[in-house]
């Protein structure tokens, strides 16, 4: 059988023949640590975006892992689709991959001005108009348990006054 050579992947600390869970996140996505894998070894990878460089890094990580490995991809849809295609080329099956698209579920943004919430697919830091009062809200990463939504703040003070 063909031997598997360990590619030099800087800093991913991957053992050849890795059969645990690989969590790769792209962009501003939070890490996928909430994927419970207490029983299995886990490898976290974070990439800014799906570029030829980062995808080839993913390719070499998969190339040195073994059947049994599971892949979680999170981030913007375009990036994780590209990563999933690379994983499929490496021989991973659909049922071995979980795609957590950021855009899959909108985030609720809480408006401090009118107290309504606005669903959005935009990542933190972008502007969305409030559904309640029309104020331009800047979305944040701060989830308020009390409000059950991410906090937004008025992009321009005069609108909120």
């Amino acid at each position: 059988m063909s031997s598997v050579s360990m590619p030099q992947v800087a800093g991913n600390g991957l053992e050849p023949g890795f059969r645990g869970v690989i969590c790769a996140s792209f962009g501003a996505a939070g890490d996928t640590a909430e994927q419970q894998s207490d029983s299995q070894p886990k490898l976290d990878l974070h990439f800014e975006a799906a570029t030829p460089q980062t995808l080839s890094e993913l390719r070499s990580v998969l190339g040195s892992s073994s059947v049994g490995v599971r892949l979680f991809l999170s981030g913007p849809t375009a990036d994780i689709r590209a990563a999933a295609a690379v994983a499929a080329e490496c021989g991973l099956h659909q049922e071995e991959m979980t795609l957590l698209s950021e855009e899959a579920a909108p985030r609720a943004i809480y408006c401090p001005h009118c107290h309504s919430t606005t669903p959005t697919f935009q990542p933190a830091g972008s502007e969305v108009p409030c559904q309640g009062c029309g104020t331009a809200l800047v979305t944040t990463d701060h989830f308020s348990r009390r409000m059950g939504a991410y906090l937004g703040y008025a992009a321009r003070v005069e609108e909120a006054s």
């Binding site: 023949g17 059969r19 892992s65 073994s66 059947v67 049994g68 490496c90 021989g91």
Partner: peptide
């Protein structure tokens, strides 16, 4: 063998 196959096996 079951634990050392490359992911395309």
């Amino acid at each position: 063998q079951l634990t050392k196959q490359g992911v395309g096996t």
